[in-house]
Amino acid sequence: MIGVLVVDDQSMVREGFAALLAAQPDVEVLGTAGDGRAAVEEVRRLAAAGRVPDVVLMDVRMPRLDGIEATRLLLADPGAPPPRVLVLTTFDLDDHVYAALRAGASGFLLKHAPAAELLHAVRVVATGEALLAPEVTRRLIARYLETGPARAEDGERPARLAALTPREVEVLRLVARGLSNREVAEELVVVEQTAKTHVSRVLTKLGLRDRVQAVVLAYEMGLVRPGG
């Protein structure tokens, strides 16, 4: 069962998501919260009871504590294994999306996405993967990295990427383009398990938690460019 905490300041939205998820045979809604501070407190309460949520469905714009800061606190909390955070946003050009990725979110989804897409997103994130498959995710990452914090200059790249082999650098480029392990394997003409191993080594060597962080780093290092 996938344990989910639903966080949104609008009660109808919160209850709607909770009802949709609770109706799935492989999902258990562990609780809900109306703002970021309540979300952090609820995750800590659940952790104390031995039930850390697998996924926190996190709204961005909320009172008391927004979803970005709540995500940052949850993922930095040394008291329990961190949940995966799937950020929900109302606007496809929300100024906070890039910050949410930087805070360690495993992906994000537009609130008006179809129910099937939401369910798919929760299941993908619960497995430990980043939600990079939908075209909107790749587009938004590109847009925000284009206008977000300045990327490192060319001379700075070796310091961060020196630990990677040429093949691993190529794997990082492919991951940054939003390719799945299967698609990476096809590009490199290797079996999927080999591609998966390469991706895992890249994440480990760079000290990254998941593919979303790899995408952000690749863009910041100038390894790939928005739209390129």
Results as ranks from 00 to 15, higher is better:
203 L>K: 10
104 G>N: 06
142 A>E: 15
26 D>V: 05
86 L>D: 08
125 V>Q: 13
92 D>E: 15
159 A>N: 08
77 D>E: 09
51 R>D: 12
199 V>P: 02
65 L>C: 01
81 P>I: 02
217 L>Q: 10
39 A>V: 00
121 A>I: 01
92 D>L: 07
189 V>D: 15
115 A>E: 14
213 Q>L: 06
198 H>M: 09
200 S>I: 10
29 V>L: 02
225 R>S: 11
178 G>C: 01
54 D>L: 00
150 A>S: 14
169 V>A: 10
93 L>W: 14
29 V>N: 06
132 L>K: 10
72 R>V: 07
160 R>M: 12
48 A>C: 02
104 G>F: 00
56 V>R: 07
88 L>A: 07
186 E>K: 11
215 V>M: 12
4 V>K: 04
147 T>C: 06
63 P>Y: 02
57 L>P: 02
148 G>H: 05
143 R>G: 11
144 Y>I: 08
136 V>E: 15
140 L>M: 15
30 L>V: 11
86 L>R: 05
146 E>C: 12
68 I>H: 01
115 A>M: 07
97 V>N: 07
115 A>D: 14
13 V>G: 05
215 V>C: 15
164 L>F: 07
72 R>G: 04
22 A>Q: 14
44 R>A: 15
214 A>C: 06
120 H>T: 13
24 Q>R: 02
98 Y>T: 12
153 E>I: 01
57 L>M: 02
109 L>Q: 00
142 A>K: 02
27 V>L: 04
6 V>G: 01
141 I>Y: 07
35 D>R: 00
160 R>D: 11
175 V>N: 04
49 A>H: 12
164 L>R: 00
18 A>H: 06
69 E>F: 02
51 R>Y: 05
60 V>G: 09
226 P>C: 08
154 D>N: 09
68 I>T: 11
157 R>D: 09
23 A>V: 03
84 R>E: 14
180 S>C: 03
165 T>L: 09
114 P>Y: 01
217 L>K: 08
214 A>G: 10
125 V>L: 10
70 A>S: 01
39 A>E: 01
203 L>Y: 11
215 V>I: 06
48 A>E: 10
169 V>H: 10
94 D>K: 05
3 G>I: 03
187 E>F: 08
